[in-house]
Computed example of a mutant assay.
Amino acid sequence: MASTNDIRNGVVLNLDGQLWSVVEFQHVKPGKGGAFVRTKIKNVTSGKVVDKTFNAGAKVDFANVDRREMQYLYTDGDGYVFMDTSDYDQVTVSSEVVGDAANYMLENQNVTIALHDGTPLYVELPASVVLEVTYTEPGLQGDRSTGGTKPATVETGYQIQVPLFLETGTKVKVDTRTGDYLGRVN
């Protein structure tokens, strides 16, 4: 057990038997009354985000979450197979846990996997990844970067919106949080 003074972004709390990750926190000391900690927490399994307020100094239960660097190897019939880069153990993670991260993962790419008592909770990707455009409609003469956008399929099979001037075979940087096009990569 720890106190609310130890709450930081990214820590995982065990509340009523469920795991919640702290997205935002703020220590508040009003002019009147006692201090408190206002948090925005996200349910690790369902992804639901709620606001929760704790009294300052109250005891909270921190969950023991182990974040490990792992390499994505391949997709199995029922999940995704990752290899721990430190001891070469292989772990199969279900497609429900991987979620939208599958849209940005390439084979042999390193990701961070959060484990609680040996059970994978979620997959953490870098903020952006470089992917190759495998198909997009050809650009027309006069298409400029200030123009509109068009759909493009990247090498993972995911479809993103790119500027009109991009062609098939171009490597692009994609934001893994929003799926937005960030720019070309040479």
Rank of each mutant, 00 (worst) to 15 (best):
N5R: 14
N5M: 09
R8W: 06
R8S: 09
N9I: 09
G10Q: 09
V12R: 02
V12N: 09
Q18E: 14
Q18V: 02
L19W: 00
V22K: 04
E24Q: 12
H27R: 12
G31S: 09
K32V: 07
A35Q: 12
K42C: 00
T45S: 15
T53V: 14
G57V: 06
V60C: 08
N64K: 13
Q71P: 03
Q71C: 10
Y72H: 06
L73N: 12
L73R: 14
T75E: 13
D76S: 14
D78C: 07
Y80E: 10
V81R: 12
V81F: 09
Y88T: 10
S95D: 11
V97W: 06
V98M: 12
M105T: 05
E107S: 07
N108L: 15
T112G: 08
T112S: 15
Y122A: 06
V123R: 09
V123D: 02
E124D: 11
P126M: 11
V130P: 05
L131C: 03
E137K: 11
G139S: 04
L140D: 03
G142K: 00
D143L: 01
S145G: 03
G147F: 00
T153S: 06
Y158E: 03
Q161K: 08
F165N: 00
E167M: 06
G169D: 03
K171C: 05
K173H: 05
K173E: 12
R177A: 09
T178D: 00
G179S: 06
D180G: 04
Y181M: 05
